[in-house]
Design a protein around this nucleic acid. Sequence first.
DNA 1: CGGCGGTATGAAAACGTTTACTTCCCGTAT
DNA 2: ATACGGGAAGTAAACGTTTTCATACCGCCG
Lengths: 343, 343
Amino acid sequence: MSAQKTGRSVTIKDVANKAGTSIATVSYVFSNNERYIRPDLRERVLKAAAEIGYVKNAAASSIRGKRRGLLAVVVAQFGNTFFTRMCVEIVSLARQEGYVVTLCNSDENVEQERLILERLVAQRIDGCILSSALSLEDNTALLRQHRIPYVVLERSFPNSTLQHDFVGHDNFQSAFIATRRLLDAGHRRIAFAGWDSPIPNVRDRVDGYRAALREYGLAADQENVLTGELSEAAGRWMAEKLSGTLGAAVTAVVLGHHDIAKGALLYFQDHGIRWPEDISVVMIGTPEWAGVLRPRLTCIQRPEHEMAVATAALLLERIKTPEAPPVQRIFSSSILEGHSIRP
Amino acid sequence: MSAQKTGRSVTIKDVANKAGTSIATVSYVFSNNERYIRPDLRERVLKAAAEIGYVKNAAASSIRGKRRGLLAVVVAQFGNTFFTRMCVEIVSLARQEGYVVTLCNSDENVEQERLILERLVAQRIDGCILSSALSLEDNTALLRQHRIPYVVLERSFPNSTLQHDFVGHDNFQSAFIATRRLLDAGHRRIAFAGWDSPIPNVRDRVDGYRAALREYGLAADQENVLTGELSEAAGRWMAEKLSGTLGAAVTAVVLGHHDIAKGALLYFQDHGIRWPEDISVVMIGTPEWAGVLRPRLTCIQRPEHEMAVATAALLLERIKTPEAPPVQRIFSSSILEGHSIRP
DNA sequence: CGGCGGTATGAAAACGTTTACTTCCCGTAT
DNA sequence: ATACGGGAAGTAAACGTTTTCATACCGCCG
């Protein structure tokens, strides 16, 4: 409880002095080694440590020992609800294993991302979860070079033949069930508004949409795919495009990404286009703001909790067995029913 | 570029060998000391380092040197948009000064918070930004004991006479301008729906509301204050309460916190109560979801960017001059006009 | 030609731990 | 009584840096 007088911070040596023992004994007490220490001695050491406020210096201990007690999660869009949620869960899981987690935001900037990873390497983190910025570059070489176990989350790399440990969700399936939901409700003129992504996995969404149409015997000329950059503005533009053909050519739309969806839905609201009366809507994703829209949207939701658990578990496992072959875990999404679909 | 063969990681010693120099020289090259090194030698060292992929071990360097290169931001609600935004900005500012920042989420749990701070102390962080969990407990003693500079962000401690470095916003003023805005629009029967917070600063909001009423010569019996716990449910309940007296006793409401506001607004939507037709609304705060509500809400927004800059700057300054007297920076909010007020 | 001052580098101690190795002690078997 | 074995603790080397101090070299002046 009492504070130290000196400017220096309290070390193992101070504890040893106070307890009248050797520094080795103190070290053994604090690193849960199998070495046996007489209960009374152990007690004395703990008491002395508590009295002078000793806290083990993790940096020093990591230099001789191997474990650093530090993990990192690097994401490209910190503000994105999905990633925020993943971070929160991963951090809390890792904490249970005694790790401190540093969260980093590359802000979709590969240069920034490289810088971050370099700093993390300098910190000798024990492991890393990476949800890379959008680009052709693959910064994971840095991690491999320094033998830092890592798991790629959600975003994979376009031109890589390399197999990484990976946790993500099935984009094809997401779009497929979204589209099928509309088909089941009787719609036949269904548009898809999505992101013209450089990420291969994300492109699968268009394929999912197409596959669902096929399954219902709709031909290629029944497709109505709008894609563009990832922005609200793009969504508005797509909604505008759609609104011209409402009723006639289009009765429903699959909103393939929440950023685009936001723009589109705002356009609808601002132009008096109501869902589900004027257009039926399914959105892929469950952003925070979806909760306040009325009528409630029918959304496709990723199993966030399961994904977070899987990611954390996979990283911890890979730290234990670094040489094991890479694992890919792809999760399926489910429908969260709302009232945005008219039969 | 070439990877190391051995299992060990590349050290300063390897670089020295490769460059045919001493480890001291290599160290001097990489710590930007004032020591002069002949340009050709420096070149040789850098080249050797690059070739074998040397990255300085920050943990090792922190043990002899003093700087750890690690800061922490501890917040209580990671998902809260305000804190998310603050974190993003602070991290990016600190990075410019060469720091890695670890973001921690105490999830409004003091025990968790203490645990986190203990871990951070063990990591010997150079500084900490703390937005404490709600409780009577003040965990900053831990930080002071270990001489870790810190800045308290937004949330202060109820029963503390201690002066911390602090950055926050003026809750009184926020509520004051919110209420005055409604008064200016001609409303006289204005309710306040807020959080019955244990945080003294937050309680100021009710006072701000009251002060505005006074300024317009309204008596105490014109007050209509609803407070409760911080939740959507509480907001719904307050809205229900209000809806009974709409028009007659109440024509406008100040929503004092975004969580409560969310519940209230959902209640309004679900019961066909429209703003601004049936009730005029001002919300304190600018949560993400406010962007999709139509008509747009008039909100009170904190100067988030300025606050983030101030917080980061204050921490960095305090790291440089640890003994300087504490600084308090209180920011004022401004009105973001929407269409939720009827004259 | 010896000494001196200044400059560029190297040797080694120090940092706070972990851990391999050693020592000490005591009980038991020979 | 001596040797042996094993438990409990201490000694000291190691980890990868930083930093203090020492040294080697060089040119110059006396």
